[in-house]
Write a protein that binds this DNA or RNA. Structure first.
Lengths: 266, 266
DNA sequence: TGTAGCGTGTGGTCAGACCACACCGCCCGA
DNA sequence: TCGGGCGGTGTGGTCTGACCACACGCTACA
């Protein structure tokens, strides 16, 4: 079955096998395109197509020139690829925006629940090993930064995104972190557009600030149900308040298909 | 900022904008590569690199020849791209296997909870509209197929994957469905390798069958907590029983970093 | 009227060329 | 002897042109 593949697929598979076998590890250089092409018996353009795919997927970084920093280097940065994938799938209507928001809700709830549980466990065992305590320094700093009244809507939303992402990072699950980053970037445009349709941005931003504090408080207090509930109403509340709600009448309903049983196009 | 981009990025951005603006919709044909290259003032190879990325991301399908079925067609199949991304990120050690399993646990729990809630709601309202009831026909059929004692391990695991995916599909969330498909394919190799290290495959497969029936039963009975609990122990149990457990000592712990705070290479 | 065969347009691939860039080392001047 | 400037060299980035395989659709022939 491995015959009859397109040339660039051969290259991609070859690199994947090298990764799986450990012949290639993060930080390593890929062979030069010309060498790879000769080695695999394909044209250089086919090699480039495979490399381009890996680059977009966040697996490697390319740069021209010479020396140790040049060439194609394995990096395995999951966020970039996830963002591109989610963004394009939403653009091509493969992912309904409502599903993106729902999924974000699920993951975010899981993150804060886990963080609160870890926090409670660390407190109850009274252990001196501080490493059991999740590191919430970054989220706290971001909350402080969001207090500034001089922030524009865009700056505030960027900090908001960073806050939620920092919580995911603190939970330590790289898959969840990358997925949440992708989900966020996929609906970035909708979030920003929704902000402009608010009746009062100062009111909303003040509420968001309060809710952020409450979420972080529940985590630090080791109260998983509260943290979960707070984060769910926080996210759902924002989407309900913004114009985005017009596109998401069914965020908490179950009929997300039309009369024919097909997903409703939004 | 749009200047100074690489040629293939210009092409990619152009197509993304066409998707966002609705100029391109699922089912549409992309212009021929040569025409697109001329229109955007880039070489054909650059166009091909962008198209290749979109193809791997599951956004379009290409085929040679002439006629309405040929060319590059927007399809927006989310599963393929997600699988490639997850698989490669795991291969390149960007995603620890333990995080993949944990994320699968979160999503799967959310799926069955939602299904059970929908089932309960549909029953309690006694509504004649059967569409409120999630369609569990496919999972049921898969369970029947798994009863066959003649199945090999590989066939059984394939049906198992299809069963879990069918549950996600029944929940109607395309993002979750695609993500779960990606997560599963990312650890496919580990799952299969783990199966060979079992003390007794007949015993394990019998247990899996029973657990599947119990999960589906809890969903149909409209018992969300039971469904959630059953699916979590189902997944965690399998990974604990297989050799995979050696690689996942911390599936439910929080220390997935080494002494230096870096992710543990697995 | 039916069908076999060719024209045409498409993606798939390759080879070769050129450019920009970044390092590396030689060479020349102080 | 030491220092800096400058070209060589290897890399990715891009373009061009060519050829192939394929599938459709039309035409010409039986």
């Amino acid at each position: 079955m491995s015959i009859e593949r397109r040339a660039w697929e051969v290259v991609l598979q070859n690199i994947e096998l090298d990764l799986l076998s450990g012949r290639l590890r993060p930080g390593d250089h890929l062979p030069p395109e010309r060498a790879l092409a000769a080695e695999l018996g394909v044209g250089r353009s086919s090699v480039r197509e495979a490399i381009r795919v890996l680059e977009v997927l966040g697996l490697l970084r390319t740069s021209a020139g010479s020396g140790p920093t040049a060439g194609a280097i394995i990096v395995a940065l999951p966020g970039g690829g996830m963002s591109a994938l989610m963004r394009l799938q939403v653009a091509a209507q493969g992912f309904p925006v409502s599903d993106v928001v729902k999924t974000r809700l699920v993951l975010e709830a899981s993150v804060v629940t886990e963080l609160a549980e870890a926090s409670a466990q660390a407190s109850s065992t009274m252990d001196a090993n501080a490493s059991l305590h999740p590191d919430l320094t970054t989220p706290e700093l971001l909350l402080c930064a969001m207090e500034s009244p001089a922030l524009t809507e865009g700056e505030f939303l960027a900090l908001d995104a960073a806050f939620h992402l920092a919580l995911a990072t603190a939970s330590g699950n790289q898959v969840v972190t990358a997925t949440m980053a992708g989900l966020r970037s996929a609906i970035e445009g909708y979030v920003r557009a929704g902000a402009t349709s608010l009746t009062s941005w100062p009111d909303t931003s003040a509420r968001l600030r309060t809710e952020h504090r409450a979420i972080l408080g529940a985590i630090e207090a080791g109260d998983p149900p509260a943290a979960r509930s707070l984060v769910q109403s926080h996210i759902a509340g924002y989407y309900a308040e913004t114009h985005l709600a017009n596109h998401l009448p069914d965020l908490f309903a179950n009929d997300h298909t039309d009369a024919n049983g097909h997903p409703v196009a939004r």
